[in-house]
Design a protein around this nucleic acid. Structure first.
Lengths: 164, 164
DNA sequence: CATATATGTCAATAAGGCTGACTTATTTTT
DNA sequence: AAAAATAAGTCAGCCTTATTGACATATATG
């Protein structure tokens, strides 16, 4: 982008690549650690978190679209989702337009849990962003977007919606 | 860092935070997707990958230090590690200095698998780094390091070794 | 000698993925 | 109207990866 190609070569050494792999490993490990602990006390796991998060982000989302985001099987989602529905975290309604579809929305209880979890992860992000500075944040987003498969990259590079 | 504090405020909105959460989710999902598929054909899982990776990075590492990196229990590591040892991917020797310790090193077979896996993830990183540019790469590393818990952040911010 | 450390192991449990097969309801296509 | 495709749900069984707790062994250190 702002640098000639040759400037990138030192960034592409084996050592440089391994540093990136490790940054991603440790960052993701710590990024998920806190919410995992919170979830455990509610009897949930990371899978529940992901469902709650993406339903919050995409109210009225259908099961199929959720499957596309999570990239897990219908059966895997089913166990988690039906638990969240039966325990009153997610509301499920038949779509008006296409009555085969069930639209998912968070209940007040679901909103509360989502807020707690996102607040926790958000605090980590805010702290990191403040410490790193705005320039670094731009770079962070640019590189992460490039790491994502092309199918989903548009959620972040385009002007479109971030999810679904 | 390079920007006054007020410049950071727009980066700390709820929307901005959620974008970061999603970037991390999608990037990690795709980052682990390819090696997971490779591993499955060898009958291994992501846990084996992590062990092989960090043994490659830290030849002669002890079990305890590996546990510290992975942050899993001894019993969880044991199953994966003993499998890798018995199938000839990792060599285990009694430490000369402290004979309670077992030092771990990759065999040629282990090196080969590690190379295949890291090559795969490395290609993704190299492509992303080239597409994003050197400035973005700096920002990427800065923010990720800040996301990591303080205990392990020194692996990346200091001049010291990246691991252990 | 006593204690602490490093490692290994047995047993039981759980979350969260997977495949395959099949049903039901509804919409779309022919 | 019949056929095919889509959306969702369900049953049964399997695997990996993690957990806890208890205990064994070898070695090092006080």
């Amino acid at each position: 982008m702002t640098s000639p190609f040759s400037d990138l070569d030192p960034y592409l050494s084996d050592e440089e690549v391994r540093q990136a792999l490790e940054l991603l490993f440790f960052a993701y490990r710590d990024f998920t650690g806190e919410p995992d602990a919170l979830l455990a006390s509610d009897g949930f796991g990371r899978a529940h978190h992901r469902v709650i998060y993406f339903v919050k982000r995409n109210p009225m989302i259908t099961v199929n679209r959720l499957l596309g985001i999570l990239q897990i099987t219908k059966q895997s989602l089913s166990r988690v989702l039906s638990q969240l529905v039966s325990e009153g975290y997610i509301n499920q309604e038949t779509d008006g337009g296409d009555r085969r579809r069930r639209t998912l929305t968070l209940t007040a209880k679901g909103e509360a849990l989502e807020g707690k979890l996102t607040g926790c992860q958000g605090a980590r992000i805010r702290r990191a962003y403040r410490a790193a500075g705005a320039d670094a944040v731009r770079g962070f987003k640019t590189v992460l977007a490039q790491i994502i498969n092309e199918d989903d990259r548009g959620r972040f590079t385009g002007g479109g919606p971030h999810t679904v």
